[in-house]
Design a protein around this nucleic acid. Sequence first.
DNA 1: CGCACACTTGAGTAATGTCAAAGAGTGTGG
DNA 2: CCACACTCTTTGACATTACTCAAGTGTGCG
Lengths: 251, 251
Amino acid sequence: MKQKYAGSPLPAAKPQPGGARPGPDPCAACTARVLSVCNVIENKDLGRLAALTTSLGVEAHRTFINAGDPADYLFNITEGVVKVYRLLPDGRQQITGFLFQGDFLGLATENTYAFSAEAVTPVRYCRFGRKALEQFLGEFPKMEHRLLTIASNELAAAQEQMVLLGRKTAREKLASFLTMLSRRMGRLGRSEERLDLPMSRADIADYLGLTTETVSRTFTQFRTEGLIELPKSGGVRLRNRTALAELGDGG
Amino acid sequence: MKQKYAGSPLPAAKPQPGGARPGPDPCAACTARVLSVCNVIENKDLGRLAALTTSLGVEAHRTFINAGDPADYLFNITEGVVKVYRLLPDGRQQITGFLFQGDFLGLATENTYAFSAEAVTPVRYCRFGRKALEQFLGEFPKMEHRLLTIASNELAAAQEQMVLLGRKTAREKLASFLTMLSRRMGRLGRSEERLDLPMSRADIADYLGLTTETVSRTFTQFRTEGLIELPKSGGVRLRNRTALAELGDGG
DNA sequence: CGCACACTTGAGTAATGTCAAAGAGTGTGG
DNA sequence: CCACACTCTTTGACATTACTCAAGTGTGCG
């Protein structure tokens, strides 16, 4: 199996970059805090937040939210990559987003989740009880305000993705995807040129509304055209980010 | 021109169902209030809300939000149908949503709008200054909470639309659209069987990621199969809503 | 009455999907 | 240590859905 992360055991409490560390006040030590919803809570109140939080790890390929399950928790990804998706009855899948360090997950107005979420790599997250978090939000309106900002951002991203799915060609879709990922990694302080691509071709296809074959062929096209390199070690190197960004914008 | 609403003049202050009426406390008289974000504000505070509000009307086919413009206002649709859309540089259009009575519009985190909005029929809306509304939200956290609920609902709808755009066939897309519209009209207390379809075939196509021709052909198919009727007077009658709903769900 | 516009229908095309097979990397067990 | 099995990816041949281009129909408005 080529799968880089399959079955790798995930130590329950191993301190790692971006992970919430165990201890009396894990939130204070959380290296993902600056990236996340928690950054609006002052140090003196972090203990309160920590009290609602459980830090958990899941191995790659484990589904930790199932569509239809009671929506009892909200999540904050502290490490790893998550895919959020919906299924049609016959198994067709649409991935609605990939989540990274600092991303928030679980906003729902129904009593059950309308989506599923699966770890693409080994993942660590903080889990909040819904009821408890709602009470906390009542006391800290700053956090509710922050959540509204996050939701607004996601809404804008969702609209952008609708343009991609409804109106872009396969080439434009893949170029958009690589550009988005590159910018995302930049914001996380990682390389914008050399991307890991932890998700499979099938996942990329299910995110872009294509098939694996079309994704693969388009990668090959881009390589042939000198836009990217596909090292044997995996991942992708963007050789011409400007051209990719323009192509992705339909220019 | 078949266009039912083109150029029809819109009296600036004519009282009409769902419209905010002029007067000392227009919000108190607003028949769209129960449907909208404003329903969390108690009667005694409605005057405060009314003070930030301007009730305006636009004629059909007028664009009242332009992508790229400063995001100085938020909107609450009180009457009519609005399309929200994004454009690619070469003119390809993706409609991200149709808005009806009571719908809220304008959440944005950037300083400029990332989308455009155009009246499909004559439209009336309440307009809030962004700064003023933000201050108001600080005083009425209930309203901020309500906005978060609205944003969460929209997020769920956006994910549903991504499934449609990325994974459904033309038939499934149109069936989903008709079903969604039918349920929407039901919630507004209108007929779920007899739909107006104020938007053009081109708009429907731009919403579903199709062309007008494909939308037209699929309508004809549905009519041939006895799923719908297409009266000369316009609109559509759903003859088998159950079958349409199943088709739309990919069942 | 006739133009303008939206909608429908038809014919042919192109982009992407489907089906099939081969290549490549990784882990397992002999 | 090597061979096998497994999965992911790539590539090829072909099929199909939906798009493009084009013409024709219908309706409202000037």
